[in-house]
Amino acid sequence: MRTLVGVGVWVYMVVAVLTEVLLYYQHLAYPVLVSVVSILATSQGVAIVLFYMQMKDEPASVKLFAIIPLMFLSALLVAELASLG
């Protein structure tokens, strides 16, 4: 059963990577490409964390260790970009 889930995640990963590359060849508007790729990459990360790292089975307190750094990081990123004016 778990094996099946693992393979399912892998299939999703492959599809996501290929989608990213195919979209690149479509010559979309740059902002569109950036947003779609960001969403896909993030979803890959989430899939790995939840299933391969089995975060979904961990107590909420462990989940915090994933969420806190992301909060700080997004603050850093947003401010870095904002300070470009």
Binding site: T3, W10, M13, F51, Y52
Partner: peptide, 15 residues
Amino acid sequence: LVLVTSGLTMFLAIQ
């Protein structure tokens, strides 16, 4: 894709 697949094989190792 190679690296992604190694993610799967590692998962299977744990299982």
